[in-house]
Nucleic acid binder design. Structure first.
Lengths: 238, 238
DNA sequence: ACAAATAGTGTCTCAAAGACACTATCGGGT
DNA sequence: ACCCGATAGTGTCTTTGAGACACTATTTGT
């Protein structure tokens, strides 16, 4: 009967027939009154020349956790770390990748368009694609299914949280956030209801600044640290 | 420049340094007025003789999807398929397993105690453990963290859904379900509020049968198919 | 027959969302 | 200087659904 030490010394991962495993990120932003997401045009097989989510394989040397892997991949494409990153779901089956049994741990990330715009334009195979124009792109693997699921989850979150605010710049206005929520839910919202719940929960702080576009200037707010995890007890009407 | 066919022919997964990957299930049930979960005493290294979640590695031949893998593992220990299975989260990092970089795709499952009792008693290294008595067990890997997270998610679900009903037998009474919710939330609930929302949403159907223990007999209900995905717009008080 | 125990209801209160009209503050045109 | 269109932000009534809690209903045991 061997002890643990001997077992571990004799252990070789390549003795086992294990699936391929990677990560993918659905990185959303809000720009030009549209929900957009980052796509990458594949330069390699398989699904070469199709569009896909930013993602890749774990680097056992440089990555200590799965989050390290996603953040590294997102940084390669955008040049920055997103302020919001949450695990979405893991997809794993025998058919999703032509190379065989494969697993991808998927994340939803949110970022302001502005903060990563400079880097994104400098990378040739990367594009912000409006969610509503996805049908113009040929997507590789099962990435359309993943994107659809991420979109649905983000819609749900917009009903009971202010998490979508992470898709805006650090300083943002309430009408701007409300517009984003309306795009996510696909219906207009009552201004009063929307503002009331945010004010009562004390989620944002007034920066003291205003922004004028047309009409009365809007107050610029900043998120408080607590606001990411705050959930309202009652959902907005769908 | 190679085509996809040539690429795939030359592809060998063992050329890459990929992490170990498996699945684990937090299988809850409700029995004797307690929330319990299934633990397995490990017979092999690593973490030999410690308790762990039922789980294991993907079998690329027999499993077509990750769900197949979990269901197979749960069936090995309980003899049955749980009526509720949902992905919880994927844990992956360099340190959680002594064998090196490892990933586990975790699921939450619910089942009635009764339906798997016969098989569970026949398997020697498996036990239903009350959640509140977990501290008496030495758990392997990061399974305590996983269990804690699954417990928290189940509590949240009990605030806005009737998903905990899957931890009861097919036919169950409303007071029985309310007790389970109270255990999950850790607070007494208003009988009227609890029943009202279920009735208004039309989630259950009356079996016509009654069950008498002490006092007035309680109506036995059965879940409708739709009730798994139904969510109330408003949470119960925490 | 009556008490204890549990199931199930009636109804008032309260919190928070919906609806919508109102006021406030800016730029631009005259 | 003043008014107008546009957008920001508020007041307030209605509606929905949960909390509180007393009430009725149906069983068993004595």
């Amino acid at each position: 009967m061997k002890g643990e030490k001997e077992y571990l010394a004799a252990y070789n991962i390549h003795d086992y027939d294990i699936p391929l495993v990677g990560v993918d990120a659905v990185l959303f932003t809000y720009h030009g009154d549209m929900l957009k997401l980052l796509l990458v045009e594949r330069r390699n097989h398989p699904d070469k020349n199709k569009w896909a989510l930013p993602g890749g394989f774990v680097d056992k040397q440089s990555d200590k956790t799965l989050e390290d892997t996603v953040l590294r991949k997102i940084q390669e494409k955008t040049g920055v770390e997103p302020p919001y990153l949450e695990q979405l779901k893991t997809y794993g089956n025998a058919l999703r990748d032509k190379r065989g049994w494969s697993i991808t741990v998927c994340y939803t990330a949110l970022i302001s368009h502005q903060v990563c715009a400079p880097h994104v334009v400098s990378v040739s195979d990367v594009a912000w694609v409006a969610y509503d124009e996805l049908s113009n792109y040929s997507l590789g693997f099962d990435h359309l299914e993943i994107i659809t699921h991420a979109r649905e989850r983000l819609k749900q979150k917009s009903l009971y949280s202010v998490i979508p605010a992470y898709a805006l710049p650090q300083k943002f206005t309430l009408p701007e956030l409300q517009n984003l929520h309306e795009v996510l839910i696909g219906k207009p919202l009552q201004k009063k209801s929307f503002r009331r719940r945010i004010e009562q929960a004390g989620l944002f702080e007034d920066t003291g600044e205003k922004r004028t576009e047309k009409g009365r200037p809007a107050t610029l707010y900043r998120m408080k640290d607590s606001s990411a995890c705050f959930t309202f007890v009652r959902n907005l009407e769908q």
